[in-house]
Design a protein around this nucleic acid. Structure first.
Lengths: 105, 105
DNA sequence: CCCGTAGTACGCTCCCTGTCGTACTAACCG
DNA sequence: CGGTTAGTACGACAGGGAGCGTACTACGGG
């Protein structure tokens, strides 16, 4: 089974998290994960970019510590690291998600 | 008197705010402003960059809607747009500031 | 009026990031 | 084994952003 590197909770850096969340495509991913679509494969997110670009965005999110990814067959299950982010930067993720979707979610 | 363009409250874009706050130098500025140093001139922030780069960062913050600037003589007084940001993206600025300075402020 | 101070404008690098395409690997399914 | 599916690796390219230096402008003070 292949493995993927994830930063430890203490290693999550504000710089990287903010940069990661500054991209609209990546916020789309995060919003969908937050919206109860945890454990979705990358392919399930209908992003307006090609597969390789998609891979890139998922990696940025993972390396920033925003999501976690684990293999399951040929697919990857994506999860939002809500607890870790809430522990490291309380309120940040919530604020960004709320900012993104002002009309209830 | 010269004037400077500021985005209207409704025009403040999440993309730009997050990008602006993703830079450590700009977060330094924001943190100092939040720390009771409102109305400081640009020169008062001892930043590890030259004047022209400094100008650049202040402009990015202003155009993102994070700070407001107004001329006073040859200087510019900088203010954090706390209320506008809190209104547009509730909790966001607080979360970033708290994340930056975990040991009390 | 001249000078100093504070900031801007502009041009220039360099590097990083988003995007793509193509070729590849890993896992599962017949 | 062969094929399909999901994702990766890698190279190329364009654009933007941070950084600098130099030359300039606006304001206030002597």
């Amino acid at each position: 089974m292949r493995t993927l590197d994830h930063p430890d909770v203490q290693e999550i850096a504000l710089d990287q998290v903010l940069s990661a969340l500054a991209d609209p495509i990546r916020r789309t991913i995060v919003a969908q994960l937050a919206d109860g679509h945890d454990d979705q494969a990358c392919i399930a997110f209908e992003l307006p970019v090609t597969k390789s670009t998609s891979t890139h965005h998922f990696r940025v999110l993972r390396e920033a510590g925003v999501i976690s990814q684990r293999y399951r067959g040929t697919a990857i299950l994506n999860c939002l690291r809500e607890d870790d982010l809430a522990h490291r930067f309380p309120g940040l993720l919530d604020a960004v998600l709320a900012a993104e979707a002002p009309t209830g979610r």
